[in-house]
C-alpha cells in the first residue's frame, strides 16, 4: 500500500498506553473488534465514533509511553487506521506498531500544522506526507530489518514466513 489517505485526529505530548487502552481491559477484553472499540477511551471518548478506515493520528512527543501492552497499538490496526505520525514514540510502542504492521512515522512539528478533520496523504514508497495546504514533508525509509517486518504485514506473518522456509 503506497498511498495512505485519511482524516486526521490531533493529540498532544505524552499520550500514554493507559489512556489509549486502559489496563483494566488487558485481561478481560481479548476480541479484536472489542479491543478496537476501547481505543483512546480515556483520552478522547469521541474518537471511536468518528474514526473510519484509513484515518491518521498526528501526535506530539513520546506517543505511547507507559505499558508494553500491545493492544494500545493493535487497537488502531483493528480499526484499519492508515498510520500514526508522532513527533517521537516510546520505544516499546514503536516496536508494537511495527509488529502490528501499522505505519508509525516520526515527524517533528506537525501537530501545529494540522487540525482535526484535515485530510492528509502519505506516500510510503516516496517517503512523503502531503498536508492540506499543499506542503510536502519527507521522512526517511525504515531500516531494512524493520521494513521487512512491515512488508510482511507485521511480526506474526514475518515469523510465519521464516518458520515455513
Amino acid at each position: 500500500m503506497a498511498i495512505i489517505k485519511g482524516k486526521v485526529f490531533v493529540y498532544g505530548d505524552d499520550i500514554n498506553t493507559d489512556v489509549i487502552f486502559p489496563g483494566k481491559y488487558t485481561y478481560t477484553v481479548t476480541d479484536p473488534d472489542e479491543i478496537a472499540q476501547h481505543a483512546m477511551e480515556d483520552e478522547d471518548p469521541t474518537f471511536v465514533k468518528e474514526v473510519v478506515a484509513g484515518d491518521i493520528i498526528i501526535a506530539g512527543k513520546n506517543f505511547g509511553c507507559g505499558s508494553s501492552r500491545e493492544q494500545a497499538a493493535f487497537c488502531f490496526k483493528y480499526l484499519n487506521m492508515g498510520a500514526i505520525i508522532a513527533e517521537s514514540y516510546a520505544r516499546i510502542y514503536y516496536r508494537n506498531c511495527i509488529n502490528a504492521g501499522l505505519p508509525a512515522l516520526e515527524i517533528k512539528n506537525l501537530v501545529a500544522r494540522v487540525k482535526r478533520g484535515d485530510i492528509v496523504e502519505i506516500d510510503t514508497e516516496a517517503g512523503t506526507v502531503l498536508l492540506p495546504n499543499g506542503d510536502t514533508i519527507s521522512f526517511p525509509p525504515l531500516p531494512p530489518e524493520v521494513d521487512q517486518i512491515m512488508k510482511e504485514g507485521g511480526l506474526t506473518n514475518y515469523i510465519k514466513a521464516k518458520l515455513s522456509q
Binding site: 508494553s68 501492552r69 500491545e70 497499538a73 516499546i92 516496536r95 508494537n96 509488529n99 502490528a100 507485521g154 511480526l155 506474526t156 515469523i159 521464516k162 518458520l163
Partner: peptide, 12 residues
C-alpha cells in the same frame, strides 16, 4: 518488548 515479540522469541 511487546507480546508478539515474546512469541517470536519463543518461536525463533
Amino acid at each position: 518488548i511487546g507480546r508478539s515479540e515474546a512469541a517470536g522469541i519463543w518461536a525463533l
